[in-house]
Amino acid sequence: MTFAPGNLIAGRFAAGIALALGLGQMAAADTLTIYSGRGEALVAPLIAQFEAETGIKTDVRYGSTSEMAALLQEEGTNSPADLFWAQDAGALGALAPVFAALPATENEKVLEVFRDPSNKWVATSGRTRVLVYSTERVEPANLPAKITDLTDAKYKGRVSWAPTNGGFQAFVTAFRLTHGDEAAKAWLEGMIANDAKVYKNNGTQIDAVAAGEVDFALVNNYYLGRYTAKDAEFPVDQTNFEAGDIGNLVLVAGVGIVEASDNKENAQKFIDYLLSPAAQQFISLQGYEYPVTPGVIPHATLESLDAVQAISPKVDVNQIGDLEGTLALLREVGLL
């Protein structure tokens, strides 16, 4: 055959692919592979500390909780992940089929309110649903007593929510369980009719309140602290609804061991570490979340857990993992 650059190029291409395929497959078998749906700023220091204490090497894959969940579902039994650390119980519940059962006593290490009865995952931190509002445009007297009051005409166009957010979806599931599907649907439709504004997540909603786009936002409790810690003048505050209201729901972030893992022993050590007093203290101080183990002091700006428990609705945490009905409902009313 005569000299043909096409062949040469194809040959080089094939060689390049072959070389590249060989790279990157070098992860040692005993390295712990963690999929983290939680941000690097919070996770990286904890992992560095874990490595220093145990001598176990880790590889961390960062992404948003829901994308990680999609990836884990696609990987199934071939997943290289040993652990999945998720931002919300909805994702943990959806992934229960790919998780291994934890040791029988694992969930007894955490406070009762945070336990997973199926014992497929364990909570690593707690948070509550709250109402965030503008201190510039809202008089405390005009705060709603119940979350269902937000469908009232005086809140028209002033409230934001994030229908794709795991925390919000967990709240809707709890709403359905407590008040029934019809009531949940009526509330969602009432909110839509009242021109509730859709945002991507909790942080963008708080930005929107500060910027004057909306006056109220339905979010998790620990986002506002990150703003007010840097800027005491930040014109946003947060509040609860009246005692027992479904809007005061308690939620968790948690971690589970992937069934396909061949490194379950070290994975268990990582969970033990996350539940240790030092790690719990760090998560609370750094992330403005509630510790899940007894005897750890929560961040000073947080309401006491006892007070929160006194006003939070009684909902079976495990039921919140059952997302299907909620997603169907959100689709039916046109939010997804």
Binding site: G24, Q25, A27, T33, R38, G39, E40, A41, L42, D59, V60, R61, Y62, G63, S64, E67, L71, P80, N201, G203, Y223, R226
Partner: peptide
């Protein structure tokens, strides 16, 4: 990049993503 890269392999864009995911714009 995010979905297919080897775990632990860090590029500029995934690092931006890993830090904006919880609103850490400064980082």
């Amino acid at each position: 990049n995010w979905m297919l890269a080897p775990t632990g392999w860090r590029s500029l864009s995934t690092t931006v993503f890993g830090r904006t995911v919880e609103g850490m714009m400064t980082e």
